[in-house]
């Protein structure tokens, strides 16, 4: 009997809490909690980050295909370089990187924020940052990596902190376009589906440093779709026209349609194309340009006001 009463109380309190949270009545409590925990979380992340490098190295050994192995080696080399730096030097370099991005996009106002926490639930992909409404952060604002590639949008803004919904979250949808500059697949036999021809050489290497300056073949039309977060594949480009000649390695940028994201922000590159004969659209799995699993510093694009209504 006591357990039944306990369960009834817990369910009632839980439901009331959820309703109050949805109405944003408990935001001060969340903000206070993050204020209390942020220094500890930041410290633990600093300690855990190098350990993660070791863990990743052990976990991924032996399971890589040839191209992934090459990329992994590059990643390992970069991580090794990072591990050798002192914390202070690392922070300075991150801020220098941020400054470079700012110089490359002089028209944009960017705000640097530190990542203090990451959503542990597998059902959501989100990070917490140490900037909030007092810093001019608003829900819906676009968040970039320190290299200027798209990371996500602000989904919850408290006074001093905010949660950022990553582009791999199932709730995320970004209007995107594929730059058709890479190798094109063989045209299908069907006369209705003809891929636009391009003459670019094979295997392009995506550049993640200059999001606004991706070269495009003259005359090639970008294929438009929607980049959606996916629990299985991470990031999927859906609603692509069947006649679009998408190939592995093609760069995917924001199209700017809908007004929620500025155009020409690099989202990632095409990893795999899923083409079904009966499907009205083509789908592609994307590799995000930013390493979303180990973000330390992000940039918030405060000068861009998204068209979407603020809300969760």
């Amino acid at each position: 009997m006591r357990v039944i009463w306990w369960l009834a109380t817990v369910v009632a309190v839980g439901l009331v809490g959820i309703v109050l949270s949805e109405q944003r009545a408990l935001d001060p409590l969340h903000d206070l909690s993050l204020t209390t925990t942020a220094p500890v979380e930041d410290g633990i992340r600093d300690i855990a980050s190098p350990l993660n490098d070791i863990y990743e190295g052990v976990r991924d050994r032996g399971g890589l295909v040839r191209e992934n192995r090459r990329l992994q080696e590059e990643l390992e080399a970069l991580k090794q370089q990072l591990a050798e730096q002192q914390d202070a030097q690392q922070r300075i370099r991150e801020l220098e990187d941020a400054l470079q991005v700012k110089q490359s996009r002089p028209e944009d106002q960017l705000l640097v924020a530190n990542v203090i926490a990451q959503e542990p639930s597998g059902l959501k992909r989100a990070i917490a940052i140490d900037r909030g409404q007092d810093d001019g952060i608003d829900e819906g604002m676009v968040v970039l990596s320190r290299n200027g590639t798209l990371v996500g949008t602000v989904s919850l803004a408290y006074r001093d902190f905010a949660w950022v919904r990553l582009i791999t979250d199932p709730e995320s949808a970004v209007n995107a376009e594929v730059e058709l500059q890479g190798p094109q697949p063989q045209p299908p036999a069907s006369p209705q589906a003809v891929a636009p021809a391009t003459t670019a050489p094979a295997t392009p290497t995506p550049s993640v440093t200059e999001p606004g300056s991706v070269p495009q073949e003259p005359g090639s039309q970008p294929a438009r779709g929607v980049a959606e977060g996916d629990l299985r594949d991470g990031l999927v480009l859906d609603l692509l026209p069947t006649e679009a000649g998408i190939a592995q390695g093609n760069l995917v940028l924001t199209s700017g349609l809908g007004g929620n994201y500025p155009p020409a922000l690099l989202i990632g590159s095409v990893k795999d194309v899923d083409e079904r004969p009966q499907s009205p659209f083509k789908t592609a799995t994307l590799e995000p340009a930013a390493d979303l699993s180990s973000l330390d510093t992000v940039l918030i694009l405060v000068s861009f006001r998204p068209a979407r209504l603020s809300g969760r």
């Binding site: 369960l7 817990v10 369910v11 309190v13 839980g14 439901l15 009331v16 809490g17 959820i18 109050l20 949270s21 949805e22 408990l26 409590l29 969340h30 909690s33 993050l34 925990t37 979380e41 926490a117 959503e119 542990p120 639930s121 959501k124 989100a126 917490a128 989904s155 919850l156 949660w163």
Partner: peptide, 15 residues
């Protein structure tokens, strides 16, 4: 309080 879940979600889920 430390995640982005509405307050009460874990209370229901851990009950």
């Amino acid at each position: 309080l430390t995640t982005s879940d509405p307050l009460g979600t874990s209370l229901l889920a851990m009950a």
